[in-house]
Amino acid sequence: MDLQIALLLGQDGITNGAIYALLALALVLVFAVTRVIFIPQGEFVAYGALTLASLQAGKLPGTLWLLLGLGAAVALVEIALALRTRQMRRIPSILLLNCGIPLLLGGILFAIPPATLPLAVQVVLALMLVVPLGPMVYRLAFQPIAEASVLVLLIVSIAVHVTLIGLGLLFFGAEGSRTPAFTDMSFEIGDALLQGQTVLVVVASAVLIVALYFFFERTIYGKALRATAMNRTGARLMGISATMAGKLSFTLATLIGAFSGVLISPITTIYYDSGFLIGLKGFVGAIVGGLASYPVAAAGAVLVGLLEAYSSFWASAYKEVIVFTMIIPVLLWRSLTTRHVEEEE
């Protein structure tokens, strides 16, 4: 291995690591706030990428039907609840939020052929189609069992993952898609060629991470999420409802997931089931951070990316084995150094 190869591998590892870091942050966020291990995170990566690809191919993305369906289901549940507690004045806003906006989005897609729109608008449309799915999934699958044990939440999480993968196959087919690069620029550094898209991924991830930092440190909603993660009872007493915190964290996680999908879809082919493995690597990063520390999780995820890049050079057939085996020493080390934290308060 010469220096040039080492640099190229490092560049590749950091690019993938940046994506894993984003996903790791989202996983830590969701776990800290809701105690849900968010396995379906990967599906939202694939949904984001494939929805964008569908829009660019001039097809109506299947996620629109999912959005309409879930929106209707959420509206039904909420209206039933409003009727039971006699809060009729909530009904119009429920309908508008869960049915009206998705229908409007669908109408726009029917009226304007999405393939002709500029790329930035397509990206925004794709995110608007995918991101609301997160809070809707939370409302339907997790909110009713918010007080359940971590294990029950994990089982439901796996069920949601399997369901979303199946729907992904139905919506997008078995074959993968790629989207055109956001930029065709490339830079020569020494002998190495640096792709503009690669730089974009790293920069966009860094910007998103900084934005998240500001959200958590400087805004009252961000602080409220952190507060819920630190002390659920304390947060409730401040009027920070677990439901609101859950929905907010799922919205953020889905946004991060879908955005990651949009970022990497020009670099690699994304299939309906690609997200799982990508999410799993983010998960390894999150585990390194003990599902609690954001900076350690992000660093762990970048480490996963680098490990993956270098092991694909040295022993490509065993790459996954190496990456996932990394969990074992990390868990061992953590179980020896950290005291056991009670899961329920």
Binding site: I267, Y271, S274, A309, S312, F313, W314
Partner: peptide
């Protein structure tokens, strides 16, 4: 490499 790999740069 794996069908689902997002990068084969090393190989």
């Amino acid at each position: 490499y794996q069908r689902n790999d997002t990068s084969v740069t090393g190989q």
